[in-house]
Design a protein around this nucleic acid. Structure first.
Length: 346
DNA sequence: AAAGCGTGGAC
DNA sequence: TGTCCAAGCTT
């Protein structure tokens, strides 16, 4: 209880003034939690304001098209969050008659909501004493109690959840949960934590054994896959182009130019000889020019995508029916958007 | 169980 | 420059 009391006291004096802390409306808390999954406050803030403005209630969100939702989400990454948010909004409106679920178990049923988010919403909005365990909580608990279990192992996940649950102040679960997270984000930071002025430094296990830097422990990192993209940026005499909706993997349901993926970088000769290139342009007159001077490298957590954007000027054809002026209305990846910004300024 | 899923900031 | 990793979830 001393652990919680100290953190809550620190929290009440040091918490940031964030917009989702001005409300206990579960729709807004849910929205903020989804936006903040694996995302920094500084990065998510603008998106929270956009979504609140466009979709002030779950009904407006449910009425929107998935394309509208993805367009608003554009640039934030992890787009399944947007798809699941939209799906769950429709579920709340149609199946739950617009009534937001009020318990951990029922909130957990929403797509895109796992243990963390269900605990956060249930505790903050409905005073249910369910402990949150996010990256901050792992770090604070691992350091303070000197726990060396891997936070990404089945055993570690279970262990930390149980400990967090034992530590929660059942009278103020929402405040307690936010206190631990805010403390992890601002005091017990990943790098250069402020141990000298930490209110828990006299009882911190890892500080006593000089192991703060080693904790939390995480099992081996992922390996990166290299991919090679060739985008066919069609530009007809009528200023039209072609966009395709992605149907699998990364950037699912976002739009892009016709893509030829290869196992290595290819040159123009290989490109125009490619089966998919010939299939798209068969008998049309085309002129091909590489837009970027150096291959564009787009780095994601799990893959490095080496991309060439090929401008293909061609005669008019009804299969290229997207007006260039309307390209900006489609949700696209940051990779494609970066290209568009450069292409438009030319 | 382990891999897939984005982007950007900090050091 | 490369590495870490951020209010995680899904399959």
């Amino acid at each position: 209880m001393k652990f919680s009391n100290t953190l809550v006291q620190w929290y009440l004096q040091n918490k940031r003034d964030l917009p989702w802390r001005q409300t206990s409306n579960p729709y807004y808390i849910w929205l903020s939690e989804i936006i903040l999954q694996q995302t920094r406050v500084d990065q998510g803030m603008a998106y929270y304001f956009k979504f609140v403005e466009h979709f002030p209630t779950v009904f407006e969100l449910a009425s929107a098209s998935e394309e509208q939702v993805l367009k608003l989400w554009q640039g934030l990454g992890y787009y399944s969050r947007a798809r699941n948010l939209h799906f769950s909004a429709k579920y709340i409106v149609t199946t739950l008659e617009g009534k937001f679920p009020t318990t951990y178990n029922s909130i957990l049923k929403l797509k895109g909501v796992g243990d963390y988010t269900a605990s956060a919403v249930a505790s903050i909005c409905f005073n249910e004493p369910t402990a949150v365990v996010d990256g901050n909580v792992y770090r604070v608990l691992a350091r303070y109690f000197g726990i060396e279990s891997a936070i990404n192992s089945t055993k570690g996940i279970k262990q930390f959840k149980q400990l967090a649950q034992e530590l929660i102040d059942v009278k103020i679960p929402g405040t307690h949960n936010q206190a631990v997270m805010e403390f992890g984000a601002r005091m017990c930071k990943p790098q250069n934590p402020d141990c000298e002025i930490c209110p828990l430094n006299s009882s911190c296990a890892s500080l006593a054994t000089n192991k703060v830097k080693e904790l939390p422990f995480k099992e081996k990192k992922i390996k990166i896959r290299n991919r090679y993209f060739n985008y066919l940026v069609v530009h007809t005499a009528n200023d039209t182009t072609k966009l395709v909706k992605r149907e699998k993997g990364i950037w699912l349901n976002l739009y892009e130019f016709p893509l030829i993926e290869t196992s290595s970088i290819i040159d123009e000769t290989e490109l125009v000889a490619h089966q998919n290139f010939k299939k798209l342009f068969h008998s049309l007159n085309v002129s091909v020019q590489l837009f970027n001077t150096k291959v564009m490298v787009h780095k994601l957590s799990h893959q490095h995508i080496y991309t060439n954007f090929w401008i293909v000027k061609t005669e008019n054809s009804n299969q290229f029916n997207i007006d260039w002026n309307s390209v900006q209305d489609f949700p696209v990846s940051t990779l494609v958007n970066n290209f568009l910004k450069q292409y438009r300024s030319n």
